[in-house]
Design a binder for these strands. Sequence first.
DNA 1: CGCAAAGTTGATTAGGATCAAACTCAGTGG
DNA 2: CCACTGAGTTTGATCCTAATCAACTTTGCG
Lengths: 269, 269
Amino acid sequence: MHSTTKLLRFDESRATSGITDIYASPCMACSARKACVSNLFSAQESLQFEQLVVGRRRVARHASLYHEHDRFEMLYAVRYGQFKLLSRDANGSQRVAQFCMPGDLVGLDAIATGRHNFRLMALENSEVCEIPFAGVTKMMASEPAIQRRFLQSMSLALNDQYGRSSLLSLASLDERFASFLLQMGERYSRLGYSEKSFRLSMTRGDIGSYLGTTVESVSRLVSRFNAQGAVSITGRTVDLIDRDHLLSILSSEDPPFQAASNNLSGSRH
Amino acid sequence: MHSTTKLLRFDESRATSGITDIYASPCMACSARKACVSNLFSAQESLQFEQLVVGRRRVARHASLYHEHDRFEMLYAVRYGQFKLLSRDANGSQRVAQFCMPGDLVGLDAIATGRHNFRLMALENSEVCEIPFAGVTKMMASEPAIQRRFLQSMSLALNDQYGRSSLLSLASLDERFASFLLQMGERYSRLGYSEKSFRLSMTRGDIGSYLGTTVESVSRLVSRFNAQGAVSITGRTVDLIDRDHLLSILSSEDPPFQAASNNLSGSRH
DNA sequence: CGCAAAGTTGATTAGGATCAAACTCAGTGG
DNA sequence: CCACTGAGTTTGATCCTAATCAACTTTGCG
């Protein structure tokens, strides 16, 4: 089914000598380390965790790591590259539910049903770590640190979605797009890259889908934000010139004094 | 701080005789049982689980069980009544992020940070079970069934939010409102009530906030849906007369044939 | 090089937000 | 008992944001 993905054994390159070698620990050498579940483990815990990772898988640009209704067996941690999580709505058209960056733990939504609810498609050539869920539950029982970290990751994923809901229910397009740009910057910075200059790997259509709007509107937003000097976006190259201006877009929209206590008069536009 | 809530000891009414009595098991006697984390446990597991519940708390209508930034120590399972989960946006106005019904497990979002990110306010006089999180993590390590069930609950919560995001990004107001009504019906039916006739405990303003629209629009939706004969809503009393019509609203909107594979042309309106 | 996918820009339109006003209903105190 | 109050709700009129339709340009891949 996933003919475009390739399996790599995780241990292939691991040193088996008794000599302590930082590069014997794949997680320590991984560029996604700082954003990954495996972060903040002690050397001891890290070794435990690495036993969970049974392999890696390369996914070519535009190939899918899994599809909706596929049986759920693995969680995946993105090593490099980027993905989009696609949901199918009542009609049958696809929507981008999320963008996945290195360090992200993917597949948590499938725990409930045992089947994947989304399709995970690579936006560029990517690689993930394969983490069998059965192993995770077993190790969560014996290793408190690993239990804590997985629960944290799930809670974090939940918060991400709360954030997205709130963004979508709340914001004008300007707010949504500003928020999107800032969020991408923040995610890059967490990986150790610049938070102001980065390259998007998704199309305008993907962005529109994610933000609940259309290609045309995204294109207009780009043009307008460029013209206002808040950003410099050419093609997929992004420069956040005036972050404060972007931030001010978020908290703009008539903040008179303080809203009444039980009053839900959140205004749009 | 929460002067309006009242603490009840959980074991107060529990029989201590050796006689097996179904009512000695509070979960078995709970009306929210079928929708609760505690569902589907064996008698043995159920007893284990009940040890986690250190007490109950009553929350008066309009009182808050917790606020943003409160320290996170407990998860709560709603026993009866209803709550709204309120988030605060960039400006300071509040938004309804979720409605919580009996059986819902609340507070999972706070695991990541150790602090609550929302305010949980009772829509009517309500009661929750208090489940210290420390106890949960401990018992998850030793009781596989309980671990499985909690992970399931978290995954389910995540899916709920994916669903909400998709709803908000996708739908016209008609679709959102139809979806809201069907969802409420489904939740009531899961508790053993009618899925077609129920009473809402939230205001139009709350609904509007939840659906990302305004009070006025909700009111107009009510009027129009009533006029079309799909529903009969007077005040907060809801009757879903023509569920098929509501369902057809969801999958309406020009489904020509089948969208192209990589094409994200999901249309609005 | 040539073609398809991706992106931009313009003109028109419609769905909902906003503003304004009236009405219902439950409580409250004179 | 009833007028007063204020939250909740409904309805109408107007305006504006962003969807839609259409044409065109640019990019990038085979």
